[in-house]
Design a protein around this nucleic acid. Sequence first.
RNA 1: GUCCCAAUAGCUCAGUUGGAUAGAGCGUUUGCUUGCGGAGCAAAAGGCCGGGAGUUCGAAUCUCUCUUGGGACACCA
Length: 594
Amino acid sequence: MIRDHLNALVAQAIREAQTAGELPTFDLPTVSVERPRQPEMGDYASTVAMQLARPAKLPPAKIAQIIAARIPAHAQFTVEVSGNFVNFRLTPAFLAHEVEAVLARGEAWGNIDLGKGGKAQVEHGSANPTGYATVGTGRNVVVGDTLANTLAAAGYAVQREWYVNDAGSQVRVFGGSVFARYAQALGVDEPLPERGYQGEDVQEVAQLIAEREGDKFLHLPREEAVRALGRMGIDLVMENIRHTLARLNIRYDNFFSEKSLWTSGLAGEMIETLSQKGLIVEHDGAMWFSEDGSPIRAGQGKRRTAEEYAASENEEVEEEEDKSKPKPLQAVVIRSPKVIANEDERPTYFASDIPYAWDKVHVRGFHPAVYVWGEDHQADVPRVLAAARALGLPDGAVRIIIYRFITFLSAGKEVRMGKRKGNALLIDDIINETGADAFRYIMLSRSVDTKFAFDLDLLREQNDKNPVYYVQYGHARICSIERKAEEESWLDREANPQSTTSNLHYEHPSELMLIRKILELPEVVELVAKTLQPHHYTTYARDVTQAFSKFYEDCRIKGSAPAVIHARLQLARAAQIALAKTLRLMGMTAPERM
RNA sequence: GUCCCAAUAGCUCAGUUGGAUAGAGCGUUUGCUUGCGGAGCAAAAGGCCGGGAGUUCGAAUCUCUCUUGGGACACCA
């Protein structure tokens, strides 16, 4: 990478200046060139002169001059001093050379080797299988799938997993709801259970079962029927969800059953391990996880009243803590006789999280194991991280992404939605209106930390305003140019036998700008892979498209000299490669016509 | 009460390991077409980066604090 090369050259220049006596002796700081915000300032810039001003006891502008003077002449870049900065500008010849490198790599352009073939997992979706996929789940799966694409491009062997919550009490409630709707479908008067699922999806599933299986479940013992219908219902719902997600270009490698953690005995082993480490304590007849093994004190682990908080304030103040270290987690319930209704259920949600994290990282070897969670799970983040620490899993192996929920606007007012109440907006309904590409783009267009309002009224008129069309249109236009160039033989290969060999030449600012944008792609992939923030793709896609549009406006291809036509067609091709790759990473299509 | 997230242009949002003059889309105003897709391009207007303090050569970015808004804090999932 040229950036590393420049770093080395700057460091070398400083050392030489010290040897020559132009700079006093001091310890070299870590030098690192960066990308200037203003493109006029060059492609890379070093700020090291300002960092050295104090130890060198010289004005920074003077230091910049000394360093720049000692950087040898090079074919790839030029060096200039601007104020206190040492700037590097890639030469047109080098940029042209890089265009050829992009063309040579084709679809592999943008791939990097951050993962070095290691195993990574992205677990996303994972909603309770108690209803069809909602728009809320949509943000989860689009973010998760895009991260999976990114890690794959970053050199990881990636597995995409859905965690099936098939072990909780919600599943029992769901089973009861299916049973009621099933009975109703067969003409039997049966009320929905308390807090049952009211959605049409449950009715649909129950209807389907009634048609396929007849009335045989009505003759079984009720408890047995509820369980059987719950299982069948979950299978049907999952089938529907899979179908919906396939429309979004999302597929999974594995569906992991929560219940399997308990039937396999892994959960029991983990609890045993933690008990031996003294990290599981008994209190009030229940079993608790306590990261530092501290005993459970009264009031911990449950919601306290304002009075209790006020009283606890009078307790002795602990000495100053190191804020960089996470506080040990002191109380999460693992198992209690009050919560186990029957053997089909796992003790608590957190009790499953412990063996699940172990299974991902230690048993299956994923590093990182990425979790994509909605903000309703934010309180569980420290718990899972604490469990990972207690189990001795390596730092950074468990990565949890929390995304903000989507809110909905209708007639300018916020609408509340819930799966249980059955008024949730389904992904299928939305993509029937917008198409899968626009849906994915919208879901990726904002940082996961930002909640955004989905305006239902704007849904239909979002066509021209949606930036997704700008990007896809740009791609289609490049393809159109290539088609035209071929059909109309802009380049007569017979007359210009040399034109297919290298010797590309670019000098127009719009050409050079576009090349620089294309060359940024690997850095964007690295950024997303490291930060796990996929929204950077949308700004990058727009930037590339914008650079191409400017190039398209300023640099005519048709009718130019053969060498220019050739060079510009090659550049357009490179832009198409970068844009298509970005769209693919986002899980979108790159249409050749619109 | 504790914890998490947010606050940047009229609106919706970017802003990478702290760097030079703060960025885009939409909206507003005004230009651009004898030629490759005008779903385009160019220009203008629009900012105490929520307030305050600190660290630093240098802060939208880091630390502390305050304000405002959202969320999470069950032997629920």
